[in-house]
Amino acid sequence: MIARQAVPLAIAIGAGLLMAVSYFLRPLGWMSESASEIFNVVSAIAFVLGAGSLLKANLSTISRRDRGWGYAAVTLGAFLVTLVVGMGKMGVNPSPSSPQAAWSGDQQTAETPFGWIYEFVLSPLSATMFALLAFFVASAAFRAFRAKNAGAAVLLVTAFVVLLGRTYAGVVLTDWMPGWASGLRLENLSNYLMGVFGSAGNRAILIGIALGVAATSLRILLGLDRSWLSREGGG
């Protein structure tokens, strides 16, 4: 129980207090730097954990011949090919500034197999996945947004003004307005809504989030919030 509950709690409280205190005490700044370095490296190693979980889940799907096991095999194949090509820096020329070091070259260019995978597989797929959301957001908005009350109507009108104000259509539609009413042109109205009203709302939300994060962090550092511990204590 000590190893599963008390030690992790002590580590969390110690690391957290160290970070908080070193922010105010400059001589302890090196501790904060070291903790950040450790954090970065442990985060990078966490990718290996994610990859391990992916392998485990897909191999189990394939071995059980579950529904869609062929797609699991494709995932696994794509993963392994990218991993081997990237880890081995296959086909990468050394850096011109240090050609004596075989692995000194940059592999993020389309000349290399890893760069090829990024440019012709990962980048188009991720961009298209996000582009697909345009249809779903529009479809969801069409079904969910109804001007049932004044507040919802304001939301809809603002969204419409911002959408139009950011396109050439908005500029053309209100281009006829005289100079003294230029503030009502869609592009200016859009900027005003975002810069004044949107800015106020966003600031209030940010202040609320900051207070919430500070309160939750304090609860963790004081050992009052242990919800993260109970999930990880098992094994």
Partner: peptide, 25 residues
């Protein structure tokens, strides 16, 4: 022995909490 992974996780949770508490404010 999967519980061993809880130790580095505790470090990440604690460090993030300590850092965020001051930087967010």
């Amino acid at each position: 022995g999967g519980w061993i992974a809880g130790w580095p996780l505790a470090f990440i949770v604690g460090m993030t909490a300590g850092r965020r508490m001051v930087t967010q404010v």
